[in-house]
Amino acid sequence: MASRTVKRKSVVTDPVEPMVTPPPLSTDTTFLTKPKIAARSRKRDMPEGLWTKCPSCESLIYDKELDDNLKVCPKCGHHLPIGARERIHSLVETCSFEEMDAEMQSLDILKFTGAASYEAKLAAYKKKSSLLKDAVVTGVGVIGTHRVALGVMDFSFLGGSMGSVVGEKLTRLIETGSSRGLPVIIISTSGGARMYEGMFSLMQMAKTCGALALHGKLGLPYISVLTNPTYAGVIASFATVGDLILAEPAAMIGFAGPRVIKDTTQADLPEGFQTSEFLQEHGLIDAIVPRRDMRARLVYYLDFMMAGRRPA
């Protein structure tokens, strides 16, 4: 079956190459704190690619430290964006991830031209990232003791937007989960459907939900994890039909963007509107799980959800 070509590619090695090679690890903590002072006096001289300013608490974090902490600010716990491959690496057992459809790429089926051509956009994004061919990475891997069908979206590729590739890769992933009797886990981050593919993008919503409908009929689990940000076409499809819906802390999650809502209703938005915490309060989210606890928590849930299927 040509459609089931499984590309065996592991993410054993640290896939994210820092823009500048970090200096050797040192126990000298003065080295870590020094640029903070420098930054206060001469902000522009801050060496790029070595330090990141936390968007929440504004403290400077050494990139290596940030990477080791799964892109979570060690000072305030703010969750910064994390690439799909890095996230997969943080979840699966070493060498266990077999990537699927790694070569699948988007096609400018509508020959979308206008202010920007889709063709040019795609080319630019592919050039920018050698690690991503589109906005989702899918494959089968082992989390704890559970083999799972895992899909992880990446916001850095065209805002994580869902076009035919995202829809097709996720549908194949779900179908693989169904046929191999595996739980499906999808970790979302997306601005919504990809405009450039018009109605083909919208139809990916029905397609992925359809595949999940059949998956659910087999009594197999589907866990949806929402991360910052997840919106629109993705929130109105596979991301909200999980048996469990989890979210990272303080993620922005919603159907319509806050500005659209404000413009339409001319009303002030409530405090904390569209955050994970707000949505848990309003009954959508089962649990808010910090990134560094995610792996263990997924194992915990799967232990229960797969308990009935395990041979005694």
């Binding site: 919503m205 209703t265 309003h282």
Partner: peptide
């Protein structure tokens, strides 16, 4: 389109649509 308002989000318009997509397939 579905209504983009505070109430819509508080009662999970995305989920309401998604569940329909799933159920209509069955």
């Amino acid at each position: 389109g579905a209504y983009p308002g505070v109430g819509s989000e508080e009662r999970h318009i995305g989920e309401a649509i998604a569940v329909n997509l799933r159920e209509m397939m069955l």
